[in-house]
Design a protein around this nucleic acid. Sequence first.
RNA 1: GCGCCCGUAGCUCAAUUGGAUAGAGCAUCAGCCUUCUAAGCUGAGGGUUAGUGGUUCGAGUCCACUCGGGCGUACCA
Length: 542
Amino acid sequence: MKEYLYSAFKEAENKIPQLKEIPISFDIPKSIEHGDLSSNAAMLLTKSLKKNPKAIAQEIIDSLNLDHSVISKAEIAGPGFINFFFTPTYTTQIIKKILDKKDNFGKSEKYKGKKANVEFVSANPTGPLTVGHGRNAVVGDTVANLLEWIGYEVDREYYFNNAGRQMRVLGDSVKLRYLEALGEDVNFPEDYYQGEYIKQIAKQLYLKYGNKLRNEDPESIFKDTAEQEIFVDIKKSLQNLGINHKIFFNENTLYEDGKIEKLLLVFKEKNLSYEKDGAVWLKFSELGQTEDKVIVKNTGEPTYRLPDIAYHAVKMDRGYDLLIDLFGSDHNATYPDVMAGLKAIGYDTSKVKVLIHQFVTIMDGGEVVKMSTRKANYITLDELNDEVGKDVVRYFFNMRNVNSHMIFDLAVAKKQSDENPVFYLQYAHARISSILRRVKEEHLEVSIEHLNLLIHEDEQALLKVLHNFKEELFNSAENLEPHKLCTYLYDLAGAYHKFNRSCRILGTEKNLAEARLALAYATMIVIKNGLSILGVSAPEQM
RNA sequence: GCGCCCGUAGCUCAAUUGGAUAGAGCAUCAGCCUUCUAAGCUGAGGGUUAGUGGUUCGAGUCCACUCGGGCGUACCA
């Protein structure tokens, strides 16, 4: 619908040249009384034309060469909006497009040939994924799906670190539990990993090796086994949500490949680093940041900034057109340093989009659950998944703007899973599947022969929602905002349920029934496509 | 103190990126099944968009300040 008006306005530029100077856009009015699309162009031209907006609006309408079989009415309203009403026949045409493309309807080739990388989850293997990681995992995977739908070839990547203090503590924790299993009296520090999984791993080692590991270094077999076991667990948790990373990138390889050393050298050559108090500092203050920061500690060990910069450089070198980093707000202070560092060594940081999601407050009943992997005070993602199912988990984490501090009440999620909005969507899909099964007995078929019979207000309302799918999807993808797709699909399901109530198929005259069937089928396709992007199933029956 | 994010109906959240009368779900109340799944539909009540000022044809959205909450502010990641 918008395309039609864009070209009409383009033509009108010959008569009103000032139209070139303003951004032409069309909004979908909230109220149907205001038409299908509206333009604010007249209001934007008041200054340059020095006339009142209503007079300008009339001029614009007069200079538009509108086809009456497409636009039934263009009228001036309010302070100077031009409202366009499309003919019912035109709106029905979307059905043909949907039935033609089916599973591919909504896909775009705008970014065909472009490559993107989405890095998400990236939790170090110190324990199982918790509900706290759920938002990151689900949103990341969905963003990747969205990008694929608009043409990108996407690599999903997981960055982790099996060195450093966290992992040392992990190895120590396992070793102590192992010694415990041997019957030794150990003092297990409070700030070590308290989780049951540590004991399990220790027990396995005990069963396999007996007491032979008593003198092994905690950082050898203890740490390595824990890392492997935990990673198997993490991957399984992700798979349970339909998430599969293509690349698992270990920070270690940056050292093995000499990237870290090379980067240090580059900083030094560019005179961007210096030594002080036995540490190496990067001149962030000269790179637009507030102060210089340490990149190599006086122990000789780099801080996270150095490998982070090196890692991003590696990703950039792979030739992606778009790089997405997704992490929680606890990391929001780290990325400006990384970007500044990258820029300083000549990378185009405009290709990197950093997506920060706010924390999820987990509630159980009326109480806030504070999660900590160390203290083993958490609810795992698997536990949640087992409780409410993948569809609910994925929809729930996707449905909110990542900027919002969402509250997840476990008690509500468990108790009211029937009332979760995802069922509203799936139910619409199941209802349509059900009709398609039923009509076979009645010798009715999906037909596009008499679409012009679809003039009921609920039919037209549904058609207009279908018209918006492509644009909404695009919006959602380009802005990296999965929740917009959820909102759209919810509205679509609502329009369908309404139509389902007022426009029956069985018992209706054949031509109209078959046209309605085509509309229902088109709706089913769009719901299914939308749900597949969210990673939610579209059941045939419920 | 400083930086980022947030504050919208009793609760959980939307709002086409500055548009017209701020919308949904839950909860409350009142209706709709001999008819394709009632996990649905219809209606009612519920708001000074935290507050104050500013920008303009027009502000929940942009700017400034105030109040309140989250996360950071390391030679932890």
